[in-house]
Amino acid sequence: MRILGLETSCDETGVAIFDTRRGLLAHALFSQVDIHVEYGGVVPELASRDHVRKALPLVQQVMQDAATTPEELDGIAYTAGPGLVGALMVGATLAQTLAWSWSIPALGVHHMEGHLLAPMLEDEHPQYPFVALLVSGGHTQLVRVDGIGQYRLLGESLDDAAGEAFDKAAKMLGLPYPGGPHIARLAESGDAARFDFPRPMVNRPGLDFSFSGLKTFTLNTVNACRDETGLTDQDKCDIARAFEEAVVATLVIKCRRALEQEGLSTLVMAGGVSANRNLRAQLQAALAKLGARVFYPAPQFCTDNGAMIAYAGAQRLAAGQMDGPATTVRPRWPMTELAPL
């Protein structure tokens, strides 16, 4: 079964073709970062406008790259939510009308299920059941996964997502959007001993997260260090290091706790923040002590992409699922509402 996948839920237009026998045949991505950088965050209207321009050329490109004709496609998967409603509409409408015109089924896919299954695109991929840490600019969730569509939410952020906290901390340090890679770069030259940032909610039982207090602590530290000339480069590096250490330590502690609670030994990490190298290293070290393994997607599939949507859609389309007659997008869509396969 060969599936075209479209992702337009936020600020990346991603398109891919996945074949259930041959694997990923082609993928293409257009990132809108340059469009949004001068606003310090994603502007929904600009995002939607750009998806209309980029989605169809990317479809043409992947069909060419995968040497796939319309007759060889068995279905089209698109991100139906959660995400920016106007942006979701673009991919959904294009996917649905392509599918209708080609007389093949279409299926709206859950964006976070796409992220969660992205490690399955790798040759060496995890086996069910596992615990997934979904960590991006929009989400921070720990989910128990017993199979496709069999999800139980173990914990989530009560306020900001971890990626959002990275973006806000970056803004405080005068760094461009998106903040994660910039914080990580500065943190490499930071002195870990200079500041001790709190590890939010680690002393409380449970698996929920909170990053808004850490954000305030960062702002207070920035203000305390700042003189009339602003922050020194070393101040910025040291704050970035302390901030990153606090987020990473919190995520690692909660992941370890989740595995212990569920009695599982496999962790899957996905979403944009899962590209953070410090997080990967510390998680790997901490889980090795437990005899547990961590899996994550290839770097290009950590952020939003079409490949994960094509993969997730292929699993569900192969099981006979498809859109009903009046399917529409769902900007808010709890993952636990998904049907199991």
Partner: peptide, 19 residues
């Protein structure tokens, strides 16, 4: 309506490209 215009344009793209 911006969203409405994009729905019509995306639908036209899908049908015109496919057919």
């Amino acid at each position: 309506s911006f969203t409405g215009l994009r729905i019509a344009a995306s639908a036209a793209q899908g049908i015109c490209f496919a057919a």
